[in-house]
Design a protein around this nucleic acid. Structure first.
Lengths: 194, 194
DNA sequence: CGTCTATTTGAATGTACTCAAAAGCGGTGG
DNA sequence: CCACCGCTTTTGAGTACATTCAAATAGACG
């Protein structure tokens, strides 16, 4: 069932033969993570691409005032990593944490390189993931400069429809870039309208 | 002289033989751009990596209220492109414009692919450029969420030391994400201090 | 049940924006 | 060479969006 999910995810972008599928799945490691476990800390080198089977992870940074800023959430069927650190193999700026008990499939940097050698189609797959990350980042920069908190909240809801009800409001506030207090007021204003 | 500049730029990351250098330079096109000329418009497909020899370009988006947001400046010795569109060859969201009379060296997407075939070292070079773009975007998201306009201005000054005096304030304001009016007040407050 | 964290509410404040108008500055044509 | 035009920059006054700090309330979990 975990393997089914990841193979489905990949088949959206490339087609694999049965043999290629088993080569791929042979490189994966299954990993359980308890809620609140830190998977990657700021300053560490990111060694894995992580695919979320169940649960949910988040990546975030901590600013000089100790305030956390959520970069990304990863509900089931999403990939997560500190892309910069993963690509460069240099220390990264992000922390990654399980916000629920989670089940992950790990693909190490080494295995990923092997995959490129044996099944070049995977170059395409991971290139597409990188492109999507880059495009999302670009868009977010523009959104943060041109939209109100309310509009950014709407974008959040479209991007993570499954998370709206399960996630602590605090985390959503941190993602869209406002304080929990302001987020609370904003929501009650929205409810009064529609 | 233009070729010297771009070869120096590349030699920071990879070493080329004389023969490789001439293969590379043979793929470049020289291009003059008059001030205020649009080089790439939103919705177009980005077909070139652009290296700035002299002058200066900027990339920006226009939001739904018609307000421009500067994504990046490219003074001499910098590369510029709509990275997302260049990589995917899909329509992009950025505009790129010459803000001074400029002299460019163009490397078409096709030539870039050829380069990868004949001189694989260039894979490394352009991978590093992409990584830097990704890292810069990630950092900017965090900066926009956690820093004041004044702190973002300081970062701008470090990133583009040569542009502080030559660029219209308007453009700097747009890059750091404030109105020209607020930027003006901010600067006069800074002068009063030190 | 008690404790710890998340959420809400209130009041005061701050940061940045809008709109309007004046002043400065640079290029162009007469 | 200067006058004018258009664009940038500054200044002022009023306002909006979002924050801070404090305190009360509500939920979740052992």
């Amino acid at each position: 069932m975990p393997l089914e999910l990841i193979l489905d995810n990949i088949s959206k972008y490339i087609h694999l033969t049965d043999e290629e599928e088993s080569t791929f799945t042979g490189l994966l490691q299954l990993k359980q993570l308890k809620r609140k476990t830190i998977w990657l800390s700021e300053g560490e080198i990111c060694k894995y691409s992580v695919f979320v089977v169940s649960g949910c992870l988040r990546s975030y940074t901590v600013d000089k005032n100790g305030i956390e800023h959520v970069l990304d959430f990863a509900p089931p069927d999403w990939w997560i990593a500190d892309m910069y650190s993963l690509i460069t193999q240099k220390p990264g700026i992000a922390n990654i944490e399980a916000i629920e008990d989670s089940e992950l499939l790990l693909l190490s940097k080494n295995s990923q390189e092997k995959l490129y050698m044996t099944i070049p189609k995977f170059e395409r797959f991971f290139r597409i993931l990188t492109e999507k990350a880059l495009a999302a980042n670009q868009q977010r920069i523009v959104d943060n400069m041109s939209l109100t908190a309310e509009e950014r909240y709407n974008i959040f809801c479209k991007r993570y429809p499954t998370l709206i009800d399960t996630l602590p409001h605090k985390q959503i506030a941190s993602y869209i870039g406002v304080t929990p207090e302001f987020f609370s007021r904003m929501r009650s204003a929205l409810l009064r309208k529609g």
